[in-house]
Amino acid sequence: MNIIDIRNIFKIYEIGDVKVHALNDVSLRIDKNEYVAIMGPSGSGKSTLMNLLGCLDTPTSGVYNFTGENVGEMDDNDLAEIRNREIGFIFQTFNLLARSDALHNVELPLIYAGVSASERKERARKALIDVGLEDRVYHKPNELSGGQRQRVAVARALVTRPSIILADEPTGNLDSKTGREIMALFNEIHGQGNTVIVVTHEEDIARHAMRVVRLLDGKIEIDEPVTNRIVPEPVA
């Protein structure tokens, strides 16, 4: 079954009198437990596509079925619920709450899901252990390294057990060694049966995925399996 089923989607921005076709007749299907990289130069529409996939935005026209539900017809509240339940975001700049410790950051989506305090503390702690941060639970973001911050973000994305993990340039703010560690973590997450979508402009990052979708000028140019895949060493 397709988790994501996009058909003939257009996203048009009007800047003054000029209409910009950020997405121009895009169709895309992604199955459960796929590992997809979305690539493209800046201005290709990959950020717009990511926002649509992540239910942060709705298309101007076209149909987006997400786990069988038509996202295009949803209002703000429904979208917020879908994001909360089904999507785990990972951002280039981590986007952690600076004044909250790792545990509270990971707890946050569970608060919005209405999970009781004791249950969410337990789940958040477990998610942090899963990403290898068992001894950083009460550290605040400024007491953590870049890689550790991104691990907190990964834990936050995973804690609600979402249908897809959506990562936007997840290694963009990390050095290459830490970047490789994070990609190894993604490989692990995918291996556990998760659906992972990574938006990137780096060829090396994209080669970690099993399938790559290349965008240019708002259209899908190439959609192919990755042949020379990089399989990272699991981090000890």
Binding site: L56, A80, Y112
Partner: peptide, 16 residues
């Protein structure tokens, strides 16, 4: 603003 964006991205509703 960014914090609000993050909260919304991970599921905070308008009324929240």
């Amino acid at each position: 603003t960014r914090e609000i964006g993050v909260r919304k991205a991970i599921g905070a509703k308008r009324r929240t």
